[in-house]
Design a protein around this nucleic acid. Structure first.
Lengths: 335, 335
DNA sequence: CACTCCGATGTAATCGAAATCATCGATACC
DNA sequence: GGTATCGATGATTTCGATTACATCGGAGTG
């Protein structure tokens, strides 16, 4: 591979001029620029990235860690991240953590080695070393949280109003006349679940129906939907509606309902969360909370770029709009 | 951030010794190593990646381009890639191409700038510049193709026997007694679709039923499944079975079937392809061809690492096993 | 005409780690 | 006891680009 020296020699100029042709072409007179470009084309030169990065101390990369890339919710967010990053001249380093702390640490080390200019994490945990970094450098630390919001982390973030959205779901179900409602949450360690659960409880209390709630803890997977919803359905005083904190779990719940010879929404109404692409194509089409997944991706990148450009002066926790999408899986309870 | 010089000074040794502590600890006597490690811990030193990369000309990164990261098939393959890469000390640079050539070129340039040691592409096209590279450097070019296999590209690859798998599906349908079969393919520019179509045609001919085939071209999306399957169902002489080249399109087909007041498998049998996580949770559970998605990911990484380590001497086109998974969406045609 | 200024380009230091070669003391061998 | 050998470490060059500073010729100004 040709180096900048080779190009300089071939064009009869210094390396400085070659460099300028790329990074500040207005400083180079046209004929010279042409000669350089000709040499570049002829030698097939591409600036070596590591050298550039060493000199400028920038990598033009964003590290994105995600609990599970094969989860359609996250993969959609990542798509938004990738798109916004590319548009800004950055590329995406992907870190799949599988919810394992060891992997999160591994990627944290990568970040500390400066393999990326910024970090976007879509989980709810921030490794120790990075938390210290945030404590030391404050708002200027190029770390942003996506999808979740935990005030204690002191990093900027983009997410929806999970508590409010969950409350809306409950209002919808109460409005239809449901009293015995089963809820399948995700792991409560993450705010994404605990906030939604708060919303659920608050709404139920407002209607004086908190005691008729049945809470079951899942892990966002289809299988846990089958299992947890199944347990709820088998309890005495079967719920007339089930609210799952993810569409995947709702998909599992739907299967649990069918396996028991029940029908949705006739016997049991069902609500999911996220509005992944599949939600509207299930049978019945799923009532769910639509999250602006790609937009969350765009927004976290925007927040990060602000920090990297030195424009960020305060912590920003952006709440993006969600929408309760009522489809065919919810109906009034049978008389 | 502390540099190797700072550590050397703090530990009272030369930078060479500090470097050795990390890359060849057996050359350093224990007390010295301890002193260095103490300084490292105290200063919070992490070797700067760009500097290391410049010197070694290695990035320990693999660039993975994929047509659509939010497609569950690809995201599962990527998961396998990420896992195998991490295990080998590599990390993954993600490139979402959205099937656009411009983006493929963009990522090709990244690769030429040496932002990654190797390239795994999950599409069917190889940008010009890279094809030239392959022509020049041959088997040693660190580029591997996943999921698809196009002999002309002259790169190693991992994939299933798409032609054989499609033929098996047809055997299954023929075996059940189906004669009028509709097929919804993907874009035929990609071997993944054309190979499967060859398998379909070959099998139909063996049974003398090629003339009863109806072919419709989709784009792997749910919506195109709804549309293309819908058209097939509306033609005179409605097919008794539909074979979609992806599970997502099969999901769309299922919806098209329902919308017409028909039932699967009673009126129309349905087969998908890929066996994504959702396939077994649809109603009816979907008969489909299971592809070893994560294993494809592992395998392409293995192939790439072989090339990077100089172990690869011949082109390897690895065919991984697939499996026809018969579930509830296929049955004999109604009498 | 002398001097300043500016535009175009070159010279050389620099980024931080890796790796080659040099050094030095100690051990081993004849 | 002198020398070859080896183990541990240091000095220095190198990777390839960016960039501050230097240079130089020509235009503009009083």
């Amino acid at each position: 591979m040709a180096t900048i020296q080779d190009v300089a020699r071939a064009a009869g100029v210094s390396t400085a001029t070659v460099s300028r042709v790329f990074s500040a072409p207005e400083l180079v007179i046209e004929p010279t620029r042409q000669r350089v470009m000709a040499a570049v084309a002829q030698l097939g030169y591409e600036p070596n990235f590591a050298a550039k990065s060493l000199r400028t101390l920038r990598t033009e990369k964003i590290l994105v860690t995600v609990p599970d890339i094969s989860n359609p919710f996250f993969s959609q967010v990542i798509r938004g991240v990738e798109e916004a990053a590319l548009a800004a001249g950055y590329s995406v380093l992907l870190g799949n953590t599988r919810h394992e702390e060891a992997r999160e640490e591994q990627y944290a080390a990568m970040f500390r080695r400066k393999e990326a200019d910024g970090l976007i994490f879509l989980g709810h945990r921030l490794p120790e070393a990075l938390a210290e970094m945030v404590a030391a450098k404050g708002v200027k630390t190029p770390i942003v949280n996506g999808c979740e919001f935990r005030p204690g982390l002191a990093v900027s973030s983009a997410h929806i109003d999970n508590e409010g959205a969950a409350a809306e779901v409950m209002e919808h179900l109460h409005g239809l006349g449901h009293a015995r409602i089963g809820v399948v949450t995700g792991p409560l360690a993450s705010p994404i679940s605990s906030d939604r659960l708060s919303g659920v409880l608050a709404a139920a209390q407002r209607h004086g129906r908190a005691s008729a709630l049945r809470i079951s803890i899942g892990d966002f997977s289809i299988e846990s939907g089958v299992r947890q919803a199944g347990e709820l359905l088998d309890e005495p005083g079967r719920p007339t509606a089930i609210f799952c904190f993810s569409d995947e779990m709702a998909m599992g719940a739907l299967e649990a309902i069918r396996r028991r010879g029940l029908s949705c929404p006739r016997d049991v109404s069902l609500v999911g969360f996220d509005d992944i692409r599949f939600a509207r194509h299930l049978d019945p089409q799923l009532t769910t909370v639509s999250q602006p997944m790609e937009e969350i991706g765009h927004e976290v990148v925007r927040l990060l770029l602000d920090i990297l450009a030195g424009r960020a002066t305060t912590l920003q926790n952006v709440t993006l709009p969600h929408e309760l999408v009522v489809r065919a899986s919810t109906a009034p309870p049978a008389a």
